[in-house]
Design a protein around this nucleic acid. Structure first.
Length: 951
RNA sequence: GGGCGGGUAGCUCAGUUGGGAGAGCGCAGCCCUUACAAGGCUGAUGUCACAGGUUCGAGUCCUGUUCCGCCUACCA
């Protein structure tokens, strides 16, 4: 037996222990996969957070769920790897550092590409670890020795390999198309990176005069400035108002261009004027019309969101919004603005900086997505990849069906630069070198030794004027490389053109979409393209935990790339958790100011309470409205556990540390009961976790610990500890410790810190709870639950009487229990001490025949009637009231059951088990009804006596 | 316009194959019973959105209606 002195503080103090245990775990290597190769591997890769980010509720939810799962799997005997890392987040990171630079009055172009990238690495070293540190505070048991970053050497190699392979197979190509352009970030964006927000705008009606002078046609537009690039007006072929105009031409106001009126069935005649101006270079639907009708595309807006030369001298150089104003003014002056109307419509915004997107005609790199997508659809369809909850499958399929080629080039510097070179020396078909059509636009101007200032020009000319190759590259803000220039794509950086040996090769300045590297995450982090031990062991990974907001951005693309390059999907299960919203159900966002900072919650309540709340709230497929009150409740739960531990440890000197098995035949009913209940709780939790039902798992253990272990079992041990024999005490203390240990283990995945802290307070345990075996296959004792039910009924019966009749706890009462069976009587008698203690009774009589004494309160339970004689103290009216209320309930149930049992159809078609259950219940209710009726009669007699008065 | 999810106690939400409606918080009453007042005991509260249907039996399955979210779409 132990003679250690263990002291527990009055309440649990998370701040004091969390850091300590985290360091202990990490430094002891517990987060690394178990070296035992016979264990089944289990692997999760973390959704890499953005290095510029800081932890928000979404991350917290995501990380908490993964850690619960990982810790559970680790304890269940798996060789677990949870692989962490971060994402370089091209645009976001570049924006952050650019902002920092602008405070110093520096522009990235002044700094130059290499120096700027160097600067970002410095920033990353200083601030990039912030979110990792925050994830650790949640208790995340990631293997940090394997932490990866999307711009790591290894991951970059993977990106290069994938790009070159897809390029060689023709699945990566370059094309001129209309794309979503952010004029502020100065880059192309993929369709997914555009957010559409409804805005209060205006619809302007503009008169377009016919060239033949016979009237005009009115068009409606939300963007008048784009009219400068109009190349047609479209009307519906069957529109009676306009049919006769088709084939005629318009004299485009302000520009003077003659443009045709074309017939286009996609035009809705009922909307606005029914005539649409067509600007193929600045509107996606117009681009489609333009292609169909072979219309020219005239770009009138530049990459800066200003009007270009093609917009005409009057407007060139103006910002797009200033130009809109000016166009409108000019139209008014000409009397061509017919009117304007309020109009709400959706406008695309950059998801990073919220600037209004400008559709621009540019040349970009694309991934041909169709063949990749069809494989990715297949594996979800045949459930090689399971989406959980399944309802996301529909969304997934819908998106994959309509998927468009993926624009992967970004006009920024931070990221994986595209491994493509263009040779200035190679000759084109007309024998002129390619360098003559490669155009450079400089940042500012470059002064040549002869004094001329250059703002850019064709590569060949710049070379002729004396600039070196590197000078040209360094000063280029924009490099325009037309599509017909041959590209050189290599696994190694070429030093010269493989065809003409020219050293004037220009690398494509663009970098890849960050999601391109994220798409490779599940295998690039494990070492691919090298054939590593980790890759062989852990790929395909078992589970991906993510929010639905990146289902398409990331999950779908990982599946595509996994299938393409590994021939196997990157994970088996995808658990898609809900979004965390505020109490009103609104998305948390900085602009709404409704953000709850998870770190503040951890400071205030501890990581365990916070994690437990997240788990308890994580019902499948539903958004979570988060409230602080809820955490408070779970902090109380931790405190409850802490105090139960205190009680148990107070009796530590009686703990023999022998396996409970040794006491098996001497266990009393409450002990057999609590162990049986523990066993079913453990298996229920296991079942729930397997099915990703985190809330049920959390609530199950909560219910057990608080309302069975603490409310009943610990209370029931008290009389034994006070009055029992030494042997009884030893047994019950061993049982207390046994249950506590199992409870800690069951709870550990949910609340790692407090369970580890308590685990170490218990002397028997060596090492960390983190690698202790998760409780499964615990013993259960036959009939223990049913038998304990009698004890509980007796106690609650007496307590109800006390409570409802307001008998002060200080008053000790007597009670009589009339039992219906010998077995029930035995059980009650065997546990009488406990029942007395829990009901504050000084005496309880138990017999099959007990008669109701006058002035007794009555409770009728299954298998027993309880009488509490309180003589003159009894308020007969109140007691009659109470019984009548109970009668009413019983009658209602009886009616319901009676109807059912009289129904011939029910009797013939319901399963036997249901029938039997209902019959038994009916009989029980009926006998209870009889008892209560009897009692009521008795009271009636007493009442009459009292009213009649003594003679 | 299309798709998805949801309407269950005062609030926030559970409710896995159809078989007597649950939890937490809040509320009311009584209690500092030597682990815990961040606690204990007792109690009250529901036309499971509405209307039909299938079934012996529906919160649960089907159809329609309605309200609320989210995603998606080229009404300029």
């Amino acid at each position: 037996m132990s003679n250690r002195q263990i002291e527990l503080t009055k309440s649990y103090n998370p701040q004091e222990v969390e850091d300590k245990w985290y360091h202990f775990w990490e430094s002891s290597g517990y987060f690394k996969p178990d070296p035992d190769a016979t264990k089944r591997p289990f692997c999760i890769v973390i959704p890499p957070p953005n290095i510029t980010g800081s932890l928000h509720m979404g991350h917290a939810m995501n990380v908490a769920i993964q850690d619960i799962f990982v810790r559970w799997k680790r304890m269940s005997g798996h060789r677990v790897l949870w692989l962490p890392g971060t994402d370089h987040a091209g645009i976001a990171t570049q924006n952050v550092v650019e902002k920092e630079l602008s405070k110093e009055g520096v522009d990235r172009h002044k700094l130059g590409r290499d120096a700027f990238i160097e600067r970002i690495w410095e920033w990353k070293a200083e601030h990039g670890g912030k979110i990792i540190h925050q994830i650790k505070r949640l208790g995340a048991s990631c293997d940090w020795s394997r932490e990866r970053f999307t711009l790591d050497e290894g991951l970059s190699k993977a990106v290069r390999e994938v790009f070159v392979t897809l390029y060689e197979e023709g699945l990566i190509y370059r094309d001129d198309r209309l794309i979503n352009w952010c004029p502020r970030c100065h880059t192309a964006l993929s369709d997914l990176e555009v957010e559409y927000d409804e805005i209060d705008g205006k619809l302007y009606y503009i008169k377009y005069p016919l060239t033949d002078g016979k009237g005009y046609i009115s068009v409606a537009t939300t963007r008048p400035e784009t009219m400068l690039g109009d190349t047609a007006v479209a009307v519906h072929p069957e529109d009676e108002r306009y049919g006769h105009f088709i084939g005629k031409t318009i004299n485009l106001p302000l520009v003077g261009r003659e443009i045709p009126i074309i017939s286009e069935s996609s035009v809705d005649p009922s909307f606005a004027t029914g005539a649409v101006k067509v600007t193929p270079a600045h509107d996606f639907s117009d681009e489609a019309i333009g292609r169909q009708h072979n219309l020219p595309s005239i770009s009138v807006i530049t990459e800066d969101g200003r009007m270009g030369i093609a917009a005409g001298e009057r407007y060139s150089g103006l910002d797009r919004y200033r130009c809109r104003k000016k166009v409108l003014e000019d139209l008014i002056e000409l009397g061509l603005l017919e009117g304007e109307k309020r109009h709400n419509f959706a406008v695309g915004h950059c998801y990073r900086c919220k600037t209004t997107i400008e559709p621009l005609l540019t040349i970009q790199w694309y991934v041909a997505i169709e063949s990749l997508a069809s494989e990715a659809i297949k594996v979800v369809r045949n459930r090689k990849v399971r989406l959980i909850p399944e309802s996301w499958e529909n969304n997934y399929f819908a998106w994959m069906r309509d998927i468009k080629d993926w624009c992967i080039s970004r006009q920024i510097w931070w990221g994986h630069q595209i491994p493509v070179w263009y040779c200035a020396g190679c000759k084109r078909d007309d024998k002129t070198p390619q360098g003559e059509i490669i155009e450079h636009i400089f940042f500012g101007t470059v002064n040549l030794p002869d004094g001329t200032a250059l703002a850019g020009g064709k590569y060949s000319e710049l070379r002729k004027s004396g600039m070196s190759h590197t000078e040209i590259i360094k000063n280029s803000k924009i490099t325009r490389i037309p599509r017909d220039i041959k590209s050189i794509c290599r696994r190694d950086d070429p030093k010269e053109c493989p065809e003409c040996r020219s050293r004037d090769i220009i690398r494509d300045p663009d970098v890849l979409d960050t999601w391109f590297s994220s798409a490779l995450w599940p295998f690039s982090t494990l070492g691919w393209p090298e054939d590593t031990e980790d890759l062989r062991t852990f790929y395909p990974t078992n589970l991906l935990v993510t929010g639905f907001d990146i289902l398409f951005f990331w999950v779908a693309r990982m599946i595509m790339m996994g299938m393409k390059f590994m021939g196997d999907p990157p994970f088996r299960d995808v658990y898609i958790h809900a979004l965390v919203r505020d109490l009103k159900g609104q998305k948390m966002s900085k602009s709404k100011g409704n953000i709850i900072d998870p770190l503040l919650l951890i400071d205030k309540y501890g990581a365990d309470a916070f994690r437990f709340s997240l788990a308890a709230l994580a019902a499948r497929g539903r958004d979570i409205k988060f409230s602080e009150e809820r955490i408070e409740g779970y902090r109380h739960f931790i405190n409850k556990l802490w105090n139960a531990t205190k009680f148990i440890i107070n009796n530590e000197q009686l703990w023999t540390e022998q396996p409970l098995h040794d006491y098996d035949k001497d266990l009393d009913l409450p002990s057999r009961w609590i162990i049986s209940r523990l066993a079913s709780t453990a298996s229920a939790i296991d079942k729930h976790l397997r099915a990703y039902r985190f809330s049920e798992a959390a609530n199950g253990i909560y219910q057990f610990v608080w309302h069975e272990f603490c409310d009943w079992y610990i209370e029931l041990t008290k009389p034994v500890l006070l009055h029992g024999s030494d042997k009884e005490k030893v047994i019950i203390v061993n049982c207390l410790f046994f249950v506590l240990e199992q409870v800690l283990q069951l709870l550990h995945p949910f609340m790692p810190f407090v369970t580890e802290e308590i685990w170490h307070k218990i002397s028997r345990q060596k090492g960390s709870i983190i690698r202790s075996p998760y409780p499964l296959r615990l013993p259960t004792y036959q009939n223990a639950v049913e038998e304990m039910g009698h004890v509980i009924n007796a106690v609650t019966g007496i307590r109800s009487i006390r409570g409802e009749l307001n008998i002060a706890p200080s008053i000790e009462i007597e009670a009589d229990i009339k039992v219906y069976s010998e077995e029930a009587g035995e059980i009650i008698k065997n546990n009488l001490a406990a029942i007395k203690k829990l009901t504050r009774c000084k005496e309880i009589g138990v017999a099959p025949e007990v008669e109701c004494i006058k002035g007794s309160a009555v409770a009728v339970k299954e298998e027993m009637e309880i009488y509490v004689p309180i003589g003159g103290l009894l308020d007969i009216g109140a007691e009659v009231n109470r019984l009548q209320k109970e009668m009413k309930k019983i009658d209602e149930s009886l009616n319901f059951l009676n109807k059912k049992l009289l129904n011939a159809d029910f009797l013939s078609s319901a399963p036997k088990s249901v029938l039997q259950k209902d019959k038994a219940r009916f009989d029980d209710l009926l006998s209870r009804k009889d008892k209560i009726e009897e009692t009521l009669k008795l009271f009636d007699a007493v009442k009459r006596e009292t009213t009649a008065g003594p003679k």
